[in-house]
Design a protein around this nucleic acid. Structure first.
Lengths: 107, 107
DNA sequence: ATGGAATATTCCTGTCAAGGAATATTAAGA
DNA sequence: TCTTAATATTCCTTGACAGGAATATTCCAT
């Protein structure tokens, strides 16, 4: 698991940018406006997200369109696979417990 | 999505602690030993993980047993749900593209 | 109660990251 | 070419955080 992904998402404004870009690509100005950020800060946060490969840029004349990139999120998803087994086990235990309760109540 | 989870995991040693605890609860000394950390640093990292609710402690006399907690990871998993749809779409597009290629080659 | 093991906390220091303000860069249009 | 819009970068200051060293705390055994 690449820690850069966690670091990038560990900042509130950057997480909001990611969630904003989930609905489609946006320019720096649009992002700054919707999140009430000043333009330089928006650019700087986007730079960090870019370095973390969470976004890509495409120049369109004056504007730069930033788009969300799925790979780091997929890597997070793959990392979580190691743990899903565990919380399913816990759920299974609870499920088993509830079933035992029910069968007792039927006796 | 609670940013505290990302912040906690954005530190290499803490991520290693989490991955270590995936195999079962450990004491501070065991963690410090296996990760080549000094005891105070191990305690401090565990404090951060505790505040982020990623671990729980159970005192056993002198020792403290730290155990992994699944809830924050489940929350990450739920957050990723918003994005799984997208990378599946991309995969579907690729899949569709490959199928088109194949049907063309059969003509 | 005393000593030692296991753990937590404190203090200090250096590094890094974030926001503000100003400035540089780049491209389009008059 | 000059202006303006959109964006990036730099410099500065401040706050957070990590490691090192030392110390405090807590519990057990003698």
């Amino acid at each position: 698991m690449d820690i850069g992904t966690f670091s990038a998402l560990a900042e509130p404004n950057r997480l909001r940018i990611v969630e904003l870009l989930a609905h489609g690509p946006l320019t720096v100005g649009e992002i700054a406006e919707r999140l009430n950020l000043r333009q330089p800060q928006a650019s700087k946060h986007l730079r960090v997200l870019l370095d973390a490969r969470l976004v890509t840029v495409h120049a369109d004349a004056n504007r730069r369109n930033y788009a969300l990139q799925m790979e780091p999120l997929q890597e997070m998803d793959a990392w979580l696979n190691n743990y899903r087994r565990m919380w399913n086990e816990r759920f299974d235990n609870l499920d088993q417990y509830l079933q035992e309760l029910q069968s007792k109540s039927q006796q």
